[in-house]
Design a protein around this nucleic acid. Structure first.
Ligand SMILES: [Mn+2]
Ligand SMILES: [Mn+2]
Ligand SMILES: [Zn+2]
Ligand SMILES: [Zn+2]
Lengths: 125, 125
DNA sequence: CGTATTATTGCAACATAATCGCAATAAAAT
DNA sequence: ATTTTATTGCGATTATGTTGCAATAATACG
């Protein structure tokens, strides 16, 4: 399935690139200059995830948030990192903290979704 | 707000106690002998969480799963532990693996939701 | 006991997130 | 220019979870 370049794709990727926070579909739709259909945004995002351009975070609110993988090297060591959700400013950000665990025998980990919740630095003043 | 003992409450708690896996509202409703309304189950579960009898896990599928806190002492050291979701048998279990992280200055963590996904021991044969 | 208080329940309606089918559009290849 | 088919918009649909309200029942209290 070959990918095609479209204004929609570029707009969403550009927005994610310039954002310091992970964004939900909702937030993306609101922040975009052009009007893009909801289903389309989801499809674009899902494609980005498939292509490992973007990673998906599921927060405690059950919603999906998307963030660009800038420094997310697929190096086995720092494969997964924590995310932080601030209950005060309601933003989700990537923390440069590797997820460490020792999995029991026989288990195989394919993905990790780790979200810490609380108050961020900006809001704790 | 005082709590009252009801058949519903006991049935749900008993089911969670005897289950080795975390259960969704859906699964609880199906596994219960008596028919209990969906909203009621959610309300019972939310009360259990408020009272720290049960803890809530939000998985990658965006759904809530509930598990009994048997050995979940509120000791600060092992406050949070990992959970594992098997994509093969579609179950979620508590791992006795503490969540370790070093949070940046100024951040305050109130909760952690950490789910590893992959294949469990039973399914990896 | 009998009665009063109010936590709990069932039901329907609601809210929101995310997906899907299908026809129309448009990017890319030829 | 024409063909191919990935992408889009739209509406409908599924799913999870919550809420308002009246009815029910657990608990306290005389
Ligand atoms: Mn991240
Ligand atoms: Mn657990
Ligand atoms: Zn904040
Ligand atoms: Zn399994």
């Amino acid at each position: 399935m070959n990918r095609r370049n479209t204004p929609t794709k570029e707009a969403v990727l550009s927005l994610l690139s310039s954002s310091k926070k992970a964004l939900s579909q909702d937030a993306i739709e609101r922040q975009l200059d052009i009007k893009i259909n909801r289903a389309t945004i989801y499809r674009v995002l899902n494609r980005f995830c498939e292509d490992d351009l973007v990673h998906r975070i599921v927060a405690e609110d059950g919603k999906q948030y998307f963030a660009i993988c800038k420094k997310c090297e697929p190096s086995e060591k720092t494969k997964y990192h924590f995310h932080f959700r601030c209950l005060s400013c309601d933003t989700i950000e990537c923390l440069k903290i590797p997820v460490q665990y020792s999995i029991p025998e026989g288990y195989e980990v394919q993905n990790a979704n780790c979200v810490l919740t609380g108050t961020c630095n900006d809001c704790s003043l």
